[in-house]
Design a protein around this nucleic acid. Structure first.
Lengths: 230, 230
DNA sequence: GCAAAAGTGTTGCCCATACACCCATGC
DNA sequence: GCATGGGTGTATGGGCAACACTTTTGC
């Protein structure tokens, strides 16, 4: 019965990454081009095998660093879901623990070592990824959209200091909606722990200089920022 | 790099189950007693190895049937999270895909084949489960509590036909709160797709006979049933 | 009648929306 | 001045908590 040693089948375990960022007011996902069969030439989500003594999250961070140069301090990373259909990889039995990462737009394109063909693709124009990665991406997007409502996750798309307008654009791009700037401002600043004022101002957006904020200490938004119906 | 065949370490992959039910107005979790080392004599969540050609969800359903006799039609089952710390099992590298199952109270105790020491334990009096199962249980409870708000999941704790009062008691027990019966009734019946009237009545609760409902067709509660603050 | 549970009506408050309006900058 | 984005004030409407009240059973 359970955990009878010796009676188990070996599996390969990988981590796959749904890395999202916002570039030019577009929600983008990191993809790599596959060089070998199966799915040679097709785009896929970045990922790789978990090493023998490595935690799952550590493996995800290592892959993320290899592909983007980003480290744990730069991104939000969380486990998404595990995919283990028997035939999802035609070569062998592979169970993949997918992770979701949210990153601010990178000024430097990429610092990766072996990220030969990695590139950001707007999620609206992604199609036919390798393996079951279309489904993984769908699940990741759904998770990200839902979590913006009740967690301060949107700040993960922003640089360390940001304006309310920049934060609002994150919500608008991820949700694909337009929000009232006045009401959004009131709501965001009124939610306790969401934002921490810096006292600084910037006029990088043009118009009247805006206050700069850092992310606050809370991990949950009470009350939540609700998504408009349709 | 990613998916280089031959360069992977074999892992054991298991499924673990957080099976919740409500017995005597108490939220209970299914546990088994371990017969062998490690953690011999300690209680643990039920689980076991994924078979070579088996889907993860299929494996979870098989384990669930072995322990409880419950089948897919009887329960709500969803993937919870995957646990893969290198030393979580001292014998070998094991990655466990935990699942959350919600079941109505079972009139028949258990129909399992090898469920020697399986038993329901109130979650308030669970302590020191084997492996990392305390953490798994905590995550499962948190998921269940959160999902009652925005999904019709509470009906999974009820028999096929139930009254509003029975449904309300599910919320009260899982959340550990008391709810206003009048407002709950209004809210539950007003949420589109949540409940389907049967036209039948029952007086099994005593007092004025209550209408019987079945679960409705929706998978999301709009608007959600919000949990009271503290 | 009395207790218990189901269900309805009503009221007042809070909060979200919509939008008028003012502020501070670049050009 | 004018355009652009930042930020505040305020009215209106819908939802929800609180609770009075009625209904229908068992004893």
């Amino acid at each position: 019965m359970a955990y009878d040693p010796g009676a188990f089948e070996p599996f390969a375990v990988t981590v796959d990454l749904v890395v999202l960022t916002i570039r030019d007011d577009d929600l983008c996902v990191l993809t790599v081009e596959r060089g070998e069969e199966p799915y040679a030439g097709r785009r896929a989500l970045p990922g790789g095998f978990v090493l023998p003594h490595e935690d799952l999250e550590t493996a995800a961070l290592r892959e993320l660093a290899e592909e983007t140069g980003l480290t744990a301090a730069d991104v939000h990373l969380e486990q998404l879901r595990t995919y283990g259909a028997p035939a999802r990889d035609p070569r062998m039995r592979v169970v993949s623990v997918a992770h979701l990462a949210l990153a601010p737009d990178l000024p430097t394109p990429r610092a990766g070592t072996d990220a030969v063909a990695a590139s950001w693709v707007p999620v609206s124009s992604v199609e036919s990824l390798a393996f079951d990665h279309d489904e993984v991406l769908r699940d990741g997007l759904e998770r990200a959209r839902a979590k913006l409502e009740y967690s301060p996750l949107a700040t993960a798309f922003c640089p360390p200091e940001f304006t309310i307008g920049e934060l609002r654009r994150v919500y608008e791009v991820v949700w694909g909606v337009t929000l009232d700037p006045r009401n959004f401002h009131r709501k965001a600043t009124a939610t306790p722990g969401f934002l921490a004022a810096t006292g600084e101002r910037t006029n990088r957006q043009g118009g009247r200089p805006a206050e700069l904020f850092r992310r606050g200490a809370t991990t949950a938004l009470l009350p939540p920022l609700t998504r408009p119906a349709p």
